[in-house]
């Protein structure tokens, strides 16, 4: 597929600043907060970064479900550290979005009101401990494939936030792999727990790359602007190619009967995820959509008095300081 920059309307002369923006993109340089940028570029980025931030925040919930029941103290510590990292990623990303002129409160309100999206994967439930392994191995693995190319996204603050996030995500994926490895080296019941969990998470993880290329309306422009670097299907293929040898090491079966090596294409042939399910979850009708939103609203509402107290105290402190200085 050939992708070119969006064309100007007929008769529209390109301004000097727009030319400069286009040049920066063409040169693979970075756009910084004070640079001129097209309004649509700004909006696309705000949408994408906020969505990513919200995903980190909602994504804390399926794993926090197992913090209190983690089966060893070491696993408990690692899981807490991981969920904490996710809160940290949410914070970096909100900060990156703030450089584009949107406030954190505004983004939070959109999440609470249900008008902003977050990754559908977090609407799946985590009924077993093995799900902590599957989330790390499959979900964080898919996230890394999506996110590593974003480290060189054209918008500077986003790219730099992603570099930091990717470093931590690789640790997350590794700990997921280790959880599954321990289970697969364990009792027959533990092995069954691991396989059952991978059966549930495999397809939803593949859906994380988004709809097939011929059904992804925003992709082409994001690729032209170098916000996005690889197509959905391309990333999905790479991810599966990476999973196959790891599944062999684990002794786990990937639940796709059509998964076979194609010698001619030098790539795996694979089945398709259930895209109807994808659209259902996206539309808010997944296993846990309502609960995830409710938890976030509750935390926000029940914490309001604490935030108000902190703000009132800070205001009083700064007033006192001013009086002292005066």
């Amino acid at each position: 597929m050939t992708i070119s920059l969006p064309t100007r309307p007929i008769g529209g002369d390109i301004s000097a600043e727009e030319q400069q923006f286009n040049d920066l993109i063409a040169q693979d340089s970075r756009i910084e907060p004070r640079d001129w940028m097209p309004e649509a570029y700004r909006k696309t980025l705000i949408r994408q970064i906020a969505q990513h931030a919200h995903s980190e925040i909602i994504g804390m919930q399926p794993e926090s479900n197992w913090i209190l029941r983690a089966p060893s103290l070491k696993r408990k510590a690692i899981l807490i550290a991981k969920v904490q990292d996710e809160a940290g990623h949410g914070l970096y990303l909100y900060s990156a979005a703030q450089t584009l002129g949107v406030g954190r409160d505004e983004m939070t309100e959109q999440l609470i009101a249900g008008t902003a999206r977050y990754s559908s994967i977090f609407n799946y439930a985590t009924p077993t401990w093995a799900d902590m392994g599957s989330i790390g191995w499959l979900v964080d693995g898919a996230a890394i494939c999506n996110q590593v190319p974003l480290c060189r996204a054209s918008y500077g603050p986003y790219g730099r936030a992603m570099v930091r996030i990717c470093k931590e995500e690789s640790f997350h994926q590794r700990q997921g792999f280790e959880i599954l490895l321990e289970l697969m080296n364990g009792t027959p019941e533990q092995r069954q727990m691991a396989q059952e969990s991978v059966n549930r998470w495999y397809w939803p993880a593949l859906m994380m790359f988004g709809p097939p290329d011929d059904d992804s309306p925003n992709s082409a422009r994001s690729m032209a602007w170098k916000i996005k670097r690889f197509s959905n299907d391309e990333l999905r293929r790479r991810f599966v190619g990476m999973l196959v040898p790891q599944a062999e090491v684990l002794g786990l079966t990937l639940p796709d009967p059509d998964l076979t090596w194609n010698e001619e294409k030098q790539a795996y042939d694979m089945g398709q995820p259930d895209w109807d399910e994808f659209h259902e979850v996206l539309a808010g009708r997944g296993q846990m959509n309502a609960q995830r939103m409710q938890r976030r609203r509750d935390a926000h509402d029940e914490g309001a008095w604490v935030r108000e107290a902190a703000a009132a105290y800070a205001a009083r402190q700064s007033a006192t300081t001013e009086r002292v200085v005066a």
């Binding site: 940290g88 914490g303 604490v306």
Partner: peptide, 15 residues
């Protein structure tokens, strides 16, 4: 304290 993680009044407190 583990209960609070994902339920704190603000993200900074989750952390």
């Amino acid at each position: 304290l583990g209960w609070w993680i994902s339920r704190a009044p603000e993200l900074e407190e989750d952390i």
